[in-house]
């Protein structure tokens, strides 16, 4: 069966337009907060080399954010100014573990592996998308994300084998990051995700993309002897404690109410330097 290609959002089927916008926004929001945390940790890493990696990854995430916001703006009419400056905090659809400042280096490694990893699985699901505006840039993002995951895997291995203290910190951080990341990925099946699949916006059923993520992190963490709260059964990995998605809200991709710290938004919005914002004609 051939899948129709959509050159712009106005060509998308009516029931698919909002799910596409919502997914792009959730990816953009998560990248914005990842970029913030990577950037903030540029001067907090335990090694000089890691600081350069953190800085590079932050630049990547903000670059991806600009691409996504440009796409959302062109296709759906939401200006970047509206998306960053004027949205209520409870409308941001980022992964919840990015809501607050990271407490320790192991938290950084955990969001690098689990949260950035989950996002990358979804980006691979958008490759060859029938929605041409996304298909045009997603390959470039995936190429850059490969470096992020190499960095994450490298640090995960290092902390996993260094000593008992780093192992324990890594295990705690992994559980802290993985649970909200799985919540953000959502249930195996959901009507909004089904529409994306039906119209070829994503190249595989959502449940398969989610499973690819679980199977990768499950096997990888097991290899490093770090228990992250997922277990293997019938050849696949699943959360040890099933997640109750009955109250899952696809708009913000959370099961319970929550929002990012306004202190982080204060920095992302540049609120301290309000008078220097030059606007579109600056």
């Amino acid at each position: 069966m051939s899948i129709q290609t959509f050159s712009s959002a106005k060509d998308l089927p009516n029931d698919c337009r909002e799910p596409v916008r919502s997914l792009l926004l959730a990816i953009a929001d998560t990248k914005m907060f990842l970029g913030f945390h990577y950037g903030e940790w540029t001067f907090g890493t335990p090694a000089l080399e890691a600081c350069i990696a953190a800085c590079s990854m932050s630049q990547d995430e903000f670059g991806h954010l600009r691409l996504l916001h440009a796409c959302i703006n062109t296709q759906f009419g939401d200006s970047p100014d509206t998306l960053i400056e004027k949205r209520p905090l409870n409308e941001f659809a980022n992964v919840a573990c990015l809501d607050r400042p990271l407490a320790k280096w192991a938290d950084f490694v955990a969001i690098n592996l689990f949260t950035d990893g989950a996002l990358t699985v979804i980006l691979t699901g958008l490759q060859n998308s029938s929605f041409a505006p996304v298909a045009n840039f997603v390959d470039k993002m995936v190429e850059e994300e490969k470096h992020h995951l190499r960095n994450a895997q490298g640090w995960f291995r290092t902390l996993a084998k260094y000593n008992a203290q780093t192992q324990a910190a890594l295990e705690e951080a992994s559980r802290w990051a993985l649970s909200p990341t799985l919540e953000w990925l959502g249930p195996l099946e959901h009507p909004t995700m089904k529409k994306l699949e039906q119209h070829g916006i994503i190249n595989a059923p959502w449940g398969i993309l989610r499973q690819r993520f679980l199977d990768w992190v499950g096997a990888f963490a097991q290899e490093q002897k770090i228990a992250v709260g997922i277990k293997q059964s019938d050849g696949h990995w699943a959360p040890a404690l099933p997640i109750d998605f009955s109250n899952w809200n696809p708009a913000v991709r959370r099961c319970t109410a929550g929002q990012p710290d306004d202190g982080i938004l204060y920095h992302l919005r540049g609120s301290k330097n309000d008078i220097f914002k030059l606007g579109e004609h600056g």
Binding site: T120, V121, T124, V142, L149, N203, R212
Partner: peptide
């Protein structure tokens, strides 16, 4: 090298 499996067969055909 050293990439997650889902990145080793990227751009695969629709499932």
């Amino acid at each position: 090298n050293d990439l997650p499996p889902f990145l080793l067969h990227e751009k695969s055909a629709n499932v």
